[in-house]
Design a protein around this nucleic acid. Structure first.
Lengths: 116, 116
DNA sequence: AGGCTATATAGCCGATCGGTTATGCGCAAG
DNA sequence: CTTGCGCATAACCGATCGGCTATATAGCCT
């Protein structure tokens, strides 16, 4: 349950893998297609894909001899859900109000102004 | 610019560090306080805090000889922003409609039904 | 000053990561 | 049925990670 989050965040921590996800957001793609933008070997790409799949961020399809990958938005959602929850903990806690009032204006209030 | 995202996601990939963030969401805390829930050494905690600070997820305060940490929600926001952008790429792309129609019902449509 | 408290740094260790090359394996087509 | 394409796996490598112990620094408090 927690292990999954570990793997999702870890998978997202690599720029190559994020680029792959961005590419897959436009639609499914084969390994060869995914490799094109990069100057690394095909096995390296396969490894990245394995990590992404292990994190549940992508899934493998089958089309003739190709195995196209597609994005699993569910995993993306679960990940943002954790971040949202963290924000909730923050906004629900008034303890830190004291902290903010005494702090040297390090940051704006930032109570709920996201997504605007 | 990208390096920052790398570090943020990497920082979030560790359960201890996520727990620390969750704790800090309730208000600032000293190193000793943050260590309490865990059975690892104080230097290990300091290392985790260094990673979190390097990712911009927390900042160091000063209160007498203590250096309390507090959450930097801005970094959390930037991270969810990337995920949101990924979702936008997805929803803006109709290419994958074809993919979905031909897929063996692996997943529900999932067009915009998040946060419900 | 000298000691206590709070935290940071250094150096070590085994494990994991991200890359490589070499090779295997399934499928399609001549 | 062999050749070639698409992809996966294995084995190896240096670098980074997450933990440890030992030690250093910094700021109270006698």
């Amino acid at each position: 349950m927690q292990d999954r989050l570990d793997r999702t965040f870890a998978a997202l921590a690599d720029p190559t893998r994020r680029a792959i996800l961005a590419r897959l957001a436009h639609g499914e793609a084969t390994v060869a297609e995914l490799q094109k933008p990069f100057s690394i070997s095909q096995p390296a790409i396969s490894k990245h894909l394995k990590v992404l799949e292990g994190a549940g961020l992508i899934e493998r399809g089958q089309d003739r001899q190709a195995r196209p990958r597609r994005l699993r938005l569910a995993a993306v959602d679960e990940t943002s859900a954790w971040l949202d929850q963290l924000r909730s903990l923050w906004t629900d806690s008034f303890d830190r109000l004291d902290t903010l009032l005494r702090s040297p204006g390090t940051e704006a209030p930032h109570t709920q102004d996201r997504k605007g």
